[in-house]
Computed example of a mutant assay.
Amino acid sequence: MKENKYDDPGFFENYSQMARSVEGLNAAGEWEVFRSLLPPLQDKRVLDIGCGFGWHCRYVMEQQAASVIGMDLSEKMLEQARLRNNGPGITYLREAMEDIDFPPGSFDVVLSSLALHYTGHYDLICRKVHNSLSAGGHFVFSTEHPVFTAMETQDWYYGTAGQRLHWPVDHYQDEGRRVARFLDTDVVKYHRTVATLINGLLDAGFIITRVEEPKPSPAVLEKYPEMKDETRRPIFILIAAQKPSAV
């Protein structure tokens, strides 16, 4: 079984109290930008890798997609997804992202929100996603930004009075496993550079169509003022890519 902290009761309880867990996509500071990267979804077959509570699956079906499969390794996540965001056209599947094995051309759109930093097999997943997409299909994902994942501490440098002075970046070129502290738990994540993120897609055969490093919008900051420091450095990177159309 792959690394899966989300089925740990204590960790899951803390995760369930996060704003994005309680209120859904509108509480996610990056959602407005992520949504802008998605292609029109009407009548599309969609795969959501690392679907969590299923908020994206719900959104996809609200856009009149033909169907969506939400896959996640965590049974606790899927249990909540089935309770909160189920409905016609939505199928939830317990499976690790590394084990994607759908027939060629199964989907028109593949999306993934904040899941790929949990895998050490990014290149493999890019290839598998490319294979599972129809010609001209889209792959849109967010992951923790390399500036954020470079150091295991994933924390600010503080002044003597406890003020946040700056965000330290070191060992950026040293890619690989990190043990970060998240929600009072040691969680395994994987750091990779921006170049690796881009080149993994290019090597799999994708065309890069957009790259974003979003910050919370004024509306989000007004509702969640605790996010104000997220404007000082990128925490997420969002990439939109497309499988070339058949010649």
Rank of each mutant, 00 (worst) to 15 (best):
K223G: 01
R233C: 06
E226F: 14
P225W: 06
G205I: 09
P214C: 04
V211M: 06
K189M: 15
I208C: 02
R210H: 06
L221R: 11
V211Y: 00
R233T: 11
I239C: 01
I239V: 11
N199E: 14
S217Y: 01
A219H: 02
I208E: 00
A204S: 09
S217M: 04
V194F: 15
V211F: 01
L238S: 02
D186G: 10
V194G: 08
L221H: 11
I208Q: 05
E213C: 01
D229A: 09
I237R: 04
A219V: 08
T196K: 11
P216E: 05
E213A: 02
H191A: 11
L238Q: 13
Y190N: 10
G200D: 00
I237S: 05
L238P: 03
R233L: 04
P234R: 07
I237T: 09
K189W: 05
V220W: 02
R192F: 10
S217L: 04
G200H: 03
P234K: 00
E222C: 10
L221S: 01
L197R: 03
V188R: 13
P216W: 07
I207Y: 11
A195E: 14
R192H: 00
L197G: 01
T209V: 05
R232M: 08
A219D: 09
R210I: 06
F236C: 02
K189T: 15
N199T: 13
I237L: 09
A195T: 14
A195H: 13
T193W: 11
E212C: 13
L221Y: 12
K223M: 09
K215T: 09
R192W: 02
E222Q: 15
P214V: 04
E222G: 09
P218Y: 06
I237Y: 06
M227V: 00
R192E: 05
R232H: 10
T193L: 10
E212H: 07
L201G: 02
V188Q: 14
N199C: 12
K223L: 10
D186K: 15
V211T: 05
L221G: 06
R210V: 00
E213Q: 10
V187R: 07
P216R: 07
P218I: 03
T196C: 11
Y224L: 05
L238C: 14
T196R: 13
Y224F: 15
R210W: 00
Y190L: 03
V187Q: 02
I208W: 05
V188C: 12
L197H: 14
T231V: 11
N199W: 09
A219E: 15
L202S: 10
T231G: 07
V220Y: 04
T209R: 02
T231E: 13
I239M: 05
R210D: 15
L238E: 09
D229M: 06
A219N: 05
E212Q: 13
D229F: 04
A204H: 05
L238W: 02
P218S: 00
V188M: 12
L201T: 05
L221C: 04
A204P: 04
L202C: 12
A204K: 01
P225F: 06
V220Q: 01
D229K: 07
V188F: 10
E230R: 08
Y224Q: 07
F236D: 01
R192T: 09
D229E: 14
T209Y: 01
F206T: 02
I198G: 03
D203H: 14
F206A: 00
I237V: 15
A195I: 03
G205D: 07
T231Q: 13
L201D: 08
